[in-house]
Design a protein around this nucleic acid. Structure first.
Length: 881
RNA sequence: GGGCGCUUAGCUCAGCGGGAGAGCGCUUCCCUUACAAGGAAGAUGUCACAGGUUCAAAUCCUGUAGCGCCCACCA
């Protein structure tokens, strides 16, 4: 029977509506216009091991709002979703998983372990994307990328070979950050420093004469076996005389040269420092400068190796430290120890202490690539929003060091280098090409085997914006959608990722990877603390969605973005936005019951003052909305949407038309259509922010049952601009109503009681307005009558001022005037203040000479108004005394 | 050590050269046929401090203090 959809009388419930629309919202519709104009985004690919957290939700909501806005604007738009293989993180996770299943991963071959990881990935690797999809993202879900996909791997090989052939990638045996737990090298960025309480030890190192000694301080006594020298500062008077002599190392036969080097800081420790080049980056540099030898005393697992005395071999660093300390004491070489706080390098994934170790690793020389990136930003080819992040970016790029790109793990892109048995090497995209290139280069067939190391995960991530578009192939997507329009990310991966993408892209494609880098803030808990597993303060976005709905979460996130401060989130943070959804729901119910019976027509008349007002307000909203979103100012657009709907549409427009519908049934058709149209257009603007409720209501209002409509267009503005003058009258009207209500309240007149109200000192135009719309005043302020009086007439009145008139109520012995007197006195003070301010300004020669004319005119206007109001309030007060 | 950001209502934060704003909270009244997840009327601020620029400073500059973050170093 019921041919129409009807909005349920139940309160808004996200659970009833959100599941219905997910498919339609996330259905990817390829736009295909010939226009060169496009909008494309590379999603920051979440790790396959990941679970949705609020950072993802914030990050993707921002992107989705911009994507949906561009889709509505009919711009060709591409947003490719995907995941990152996350080398170390994934291998670690799967190995732990296998260990739990009692599988000893150390006995597995490379192939066996790889197949286990793939199995895990195929089963669990899309969890994060499924969770992301629930947010209602308009990605191209039918084309999901993964960094280990065949085509993306081909991009990686291509990139590697090109960089290698340019001489930017090289292999070097040097000191690297070695994770003794994972047994792989890691990059500088993956090392974090943790402050720990430890001790600084002072030892004597005797000179050859056996009498004199130098006191050396160290936090790492166990490294004595790797010492090759003792450095003293050239200005060190005490130790200067020993320079060039030799001291003996207490535990091995090596003689240590006393060298002079600025590096020895006289303020630190004893002022003399032992040089252990095999296990310290600074010492390594000193040793190189002085041509000293390097000694490695550690195995890959962090235990002491065969270059230390027998009874120390195989000991852990901690045990060796204790043992050395004891021996030092026994030998009377120990001087003292001191409690200090010391920053210890730790691997960000494993949590293990990082040992600098001498290793053969692959490096990418990024110095020149970094310079190109800096230039691109300085030229404005890439713009950071907010701009202050550019400084941070420059600072890091300027002091960038070669990037260690090889990892001794198996999950990742195996480095496309082939070795012959006699260690000649060739870089090639695959074995066939390797054979060919090898023969050309070396004139022989090599028995080639591939490098076993894999690439740092961030190497492939660095190619993401163009590898996902098909590079190095000149695909349609690559030629149309690259460079991408915007990159949205948190500041925590500017260096890990943004910088690497910039360098790779400029080097390999000759173009920047994106035009804008939008850096957003972090989400913290209500106390402003970072959310973390260890603190147990993590809020799961899925729980928030469950309780408040995706729409509320999205609107919350969109509203809270700010360049300067992080978002603090507590249990109640989403409530205002859930309430907003509820408000939209209920208002739509009103609109539907009051408009659906009306036949649609093309020539709707917008001639009632409130229709003109609300359509003009909508035009204003639309203008701001567009300009904010063009500038990625998502939070400002959200603010405008919220206040337009709640303050203008609900609190005034609907309240007025309600009265109109009762009073002038016959003459209300156009207003009903205007009202419905405003709501429809509003839902289009809401759609990028809160798509589910938008679609639900849009369909309830416009579609037939069994039909599902997608919101697919930006609304057009109304042509009411020539009627803008009515805006001022509307404001006077609002002020007048508020003023009556306020007076009633101050006189404690019960809200249900109808009274007679008087007005005077009114502009003739507004008088006509009142006469035409008397009933609106009566209803909105609950009056029996609203009558003009001549002020000169000696009525016994108590009054309040509105912006363009005075409104009054007859005195009554029941009234307590005090609150009204208090209010008027307060008004008087503020008007006095305004008056003096304006007066002073206008007496100021400098102001009159320098200020722009419109400011001066405005000030004159203010002076006039404040004077009138001040005098009037005085007058009103005298009536009361 | 180098750099960045912040300090505005009780709380969380907008505003960033021309009369101090929002949400939450608070006070009073109201279940008025869209909505109590609501409506109406309100109260609340030396815009961290000190100088300076300007006719005009919450807003620009300099300095100080407190908070937070990043990078480097860490004998």
């Amino acid at each position: 029977m019921n041919e129409k959809n009807t909005i349920s009388n139940k309160p808004y419930s996200h659970k009833d509506i959100e599941p219905k629309w997910l498919d339609l919202i996330t259905e990817y519709k390829k736009t295909n216009s010939d226009s060169k104009n496009y909008f494309s985004v590379a999603i920051p690919p979440p790790n396959v091991t990941g679970n949705l957290h609020l950072g993802h939700a914030l990050n993707t909501t921002i992107q989705d709002i911009l994507v949906k806005y561009n889709l509505l604007s009919k711009i060709d738009t591409l947003w490719t979703p995907g995941t990152d293989h996350a080398g170390i993180a994934t291998q670690l996770l799967v190995e732990r998983f296998l260990n739990l299943k009692k599988i000893d991963t150390t006995t597995l071959s490379r192939e066996q372990l790889l197949s286990h990881i793939w199995e895990w990935k195929n089963k669990n690797g899309n969890t994060i994307l499924e969770q992301l999809k629930r947010l209602g993202l308009s990605c191209s879900w039918n084309d999901i990328k993964f960094t280990l996909d065949e085509d993306l791997s081909a991009s990686v090989n291509e990139a590697f070979v090109r960089l290698f052939d340019k001489g930017l990638i090289y292999r070097e045996k040097t000191l690297v950050n070695w994770d003794t737990n994972l047994q792989t090298a890691i990059s500088d960025l993956e090392v974090v420093f943790e402050n720990r309480k430890t001790k600084l030890y002072y030892f004597k190192y005797f000179l050859e004469d056996g009498k004199n000694f130098i006191v050396v301080s160290t936090t790492r006594p166990e490294t004595v076996f790797g010492d090759v020298a003792v450095a003293v500062n050239p200005k060190d008077k005490k130790n200067k005389k020993h320079i060039g002599k030799k001291v003996s190392s207490p535990f091995n036969k090596i003689e240590l040269l006393v060298i002079e080097d600025e590096y020895a800081d006289m303020e630190k420790g004893s002022g003399a420092v032992k040089i252990t080049p095999g296990h310290d980056f600074n010492d390594y540099k000193v040793a190189k400068d002085h041509g000293l030898q390097l000694i490695n005393i550690l195995n890959d697992d962090g235990t002491l190796n065969n270059s230390v005395p027998l009874n120390f071999r195989g000991l852990s660093v901690e045990d060796a430290r204790k043992k050395v300390l004891n021996l030092m004491k026994e030998l009377d070489l120990y001087v003292e120890e001191e409690d200090i706080e010391h920053a210890v390098p730790v691997g960000d994934r494993s949590g293990a202490i990082i040992e600098p170790l001498l290793k053969n690793q692959w490096f990418l020389d990024v110095k020149e690539m970094a310079s190109k990136s800096i230039r691109a930003v300085k030229k404005g080819d890439v713009v950071f929003k907010p701009k202050f992040w550019e400084n941070t970016f420059f600072e890091w790029m300027e002091r960038i060091q070669p990037w260690c790109i090889s990892r001794q793990i198996i999950w990742g892109h195996r480095i496309p280098i082939w070795f012959s048995e006699d260690n000649k090497l060739i870089a090639a995209k695959n074995i066939e090409e390797a054979r060919k290139k090898f023969k050309i280069k070396y004139g022989e067939e090599g028995n080639l085997h591939q490098e076993t190391d894999v690439l740092d995960t961030w190497f492939s991530s660095g190619l993401w914006p163009f590898s996902t578009l098909g590079w190095p192939k000149e695909t349609k997507e690559f030629s149309k959608y690259f460079p991408t329009s915007i990159l949205v990310t948190g500041f925590d991966i500017i260096f890990f990722w943004v910088a690497r993408m910039m360098m790779m892209s400029l080097e390999l494609t000759g173009k920047p990877p994106f035009k804008i880098v939008y850096i957003h803030n972090l989400i913290r808990d209500e106390k402003g603390q970072k959310m973390s597993k260890t603190k147990g303060n993590i809020v799961d976005p899925l729980d928030l969605i469950d309780e408040f709905g995706t729409d509320s979460l999205r609107f919350f996130l969109a509203s809270k973005i700010s360049p300067h401060s992080d978002i603090k989130l507590s249990k109640n943070s989403l409530e205002p936005y859930r309430n907003f959804m509820n408000k939209i729901w209920n208002a739509s119910k009103f609109v539907q019951t009051n408009s659906t019976k009306i036949k649609k027509k093309s020539d709707v008349k917008i001639d009632k003052f409130y229709d003109i007002w609300i359509t003009s307000k909508f035009n204003e909203l639309l203008l701001k909305y567009k300009s904010f979103l063009e500038n990625c100012e998502v939070e400002k657009a959200a603010y405008e949407i919220y206040h337009f709907f709640w303050d203008d549409f609900c609190d005034w427009y609907i309240e007025i038309v309600k009265i109109h519908f009762v009073d002038q049934q016959a003459d209300s058709e156009d207003t009903r259509l205007v009202m419905a149209d405003i709501l429809n257009k509003f839902l289009s603007l809401l759609y990028p922010f809160s798509p589910f409720i938008s679609l639900e209501l849009y369909n309830q209002l416009n579609s037939k049952p069994q039909q599902k409509l997608l919101i697919a267009e930006m609304p057009t503005p109304y042509s009411v601009d020539e009627k803008q003058r009515l805006m001022r009258e509307f404001e006077i009207f609002q002020d007048c109503v508020v003023s009556i209500r306020s007076l009633r309240k101050n006189l404690s007149i019960p809200s249900g009681k109808k009274i007679v109200c008087y007005y005077h000192q009114v502009d003739s135009r507004f008088k006509v307005f009142i006469e035409e719309n008397r009933n609106l005043f009566l209803r909105l302020a609950n009056l029996d009558d609203f009558i003009e009086v001549d002020h000169a007439k000696d009525l016994n009145l108590i009054s309040n001022i509105a912006s363009d008139l005075i409104i009054s109520i007859e005195k009554n012995s029941q009234f307590d005037y005090k609150p009204q007197i208090v209010k008027l006195k307060k008004d008087l003070v503020s008007q006095e203040k305004l008056h003096t301010q304006s007066n002073n300004k206008l007496k100021n020669k400098g102001f009159l000479e320098s200020a722009p004319k419109e400011i001066i005119d405005k000030e004159k206007e203010k002076l006039k108004k404040s004077k009138e109001d001040r005098d009037e309030i005085k007058n009103l007060l005298s009536q009361l005394s």
